[in-house]
Design a protein around this nucleic acid. Structure first.
Lengths: 128, 128
DNA sequence: TGATGAATTGATGAATTCATCATATCTTCA
DNA sequence: TGAAGATATGATGAATTCATCAATTCATCA
């Protein structure tokens, strides 16, 4: 098992996505991305996410381990920042993709319900 | 439990990243992204990834469920395509971010080993 | 029709990740 | 010094995800 460096890039990439693969962590990154300087203290994240402190801290640790955020202690508070502007870009692109996709899905739903034999039309993709 | 639509965007986003969070799936997407028309038959993916057929198929099913790829059956083979150009963009940005980050890490390692008391300098970030 | 190739689905134990709770560290201030 | 606030770390059972193997579907062609 290699811990980055030495591993093929697609493994490292997968690992990065794994780091982003949790609602709480995405939320944290969104808050950071929207904050001035893409950084803010833990207390703000605490409010913004509504998580319990230790839970938040664990997600922050995960994000740190994945190199997605950095932290600096100032007096008795810790400030987190996005480690790289590309992270914000990643989130923005995911957003565009999802909005496009969701719009399409809604449209297909409407089109489907306008069809004659409506009621149990399956699209081979499940999700009744 | 909501299955997209109705869920806050950050949950849907996290879900998308979860779909990308596996080396095999990233590899599959990379191959598709580099193929003409961002699509290719399963047989090509089979070769490209070196996975066992059923294993590959399961990952493809996951990607389909996440709306990241689409599939079309043509005669006795199935062709997969990226569902949206933004997916390729997502991978490209991840790549840039990682290359930047890895370069920095290497640089820090070199800088560290040039220091006087080398051997056990901890950066509070772990990774001895 | 039925054998063959291509791809998918199902089932199961092993490995990871998650949420929760208790405890520990670090800093300030009385 | 030591009490209090702000964060972080550890440990544990519950829930997910993964890898592997067997079985199934779909289309072609003899």
């Amino acid at each position: 098992m290699f811990s980055d460096r030495e591993a093929p890039l697609y493994e490292i990439k997968a690992n990065l996505f794994k780091g982003l693969a949790h609602p709480a962590r995405v939320r944290i990154l969104e808050i950071l991305a929207d904050s001035p300087g893409q950084s803010c203290p833990v207390s703000t994240l605490l409010e913004g996410t509504g998580l319990e402190a230790s839970h938040l801290s664990q997600h922050l640790a995960t994000l740190r381990r994945h190199g997605v955020v950095t932290s600096v202690r100032t007096a008795n508070s810790v400030t987190y920042s996005l480690a790289h502007p590309k992270i914000a870009e990643l989130l923005a692109i995911a957003r565009t993709f999802l909005l496009d996709t969701l719009a399409d899905a809604r449209q297909q739903l409407e089109a489907a319900s306008a069809l004659p034999g409506f009621g149990t039309a399956t699209t081979h993709d499940g999700a009744a």
